[in-house]
């Protein structure tokens, strides 16, 4: 069983993951929640995602359009803007560097652990 995830860790990377998923294909809010669940964030709730979508849209990193649905009311589909795409490139690079650094330090600490 996976260890419980620190919500602060998720909060830091969620905007980047949202931008990454939307780069693959545009999605509406609840579909994005489902895609994040399928990606392994199965404890993520819609209530965590919607404020992030709101902020990304306000900052001009994603844009939205309403698409009519046969199953119910129109849905708001999101897609990264050029600013969002640039932001994704930047944060992905920073994340990879941070992850590599953390991994190196953790590996050193693990090998020094007394048996």
């Amino acid at each position: 069983m996976d260890a419980p995830r620190d919500p602060q860790l998720l909060k830091g990377v969620l905007p980047m993951l949202v931008l990454a998923l939307l780069t693959e294909r545009e999605s509406y809010g609840y579909e994005l929640v489902t895609r994040l669940h399928e990606g392994g964030l199965d404890d993520l709730s819609a209530g965590t995602l919607y404020p992030v979508l709101n902020r990304l849209e306000r900052d001009g990193q994603i844009s939205s359009r309403l698409v009519a649905s046969s199953a119910g009311p129109a849905r708001k589909y999101y897609l990264p803007t050029e600013t969002g795409a640039e932001q994704l490139r930047r944060t992905a690079r920073a994340w990879q560097q941070l992850a590599a650094t953390a991994e190196r330090m953790l590996a050193r600490a693990t090998t020094k652990e007394p048996s």
Partner: peptide, 29 residues
């Protein structure tokens, strides 16, 4: 709008439950 659309997939009770407590959601915003 989002709740109404989501409810057409999972039902209103589930859609509302997925948002969590309204005050916590407002704090997140």
């Amino acid at each position: 709008t989002e709740l109404t659309a989501t409810a057409s997939e999972v039902g209103m009770r589930q859609a509302v439950a997925d948002l969590g407590h309204p005050r916590v959601l407002a704090d997140a915003y």
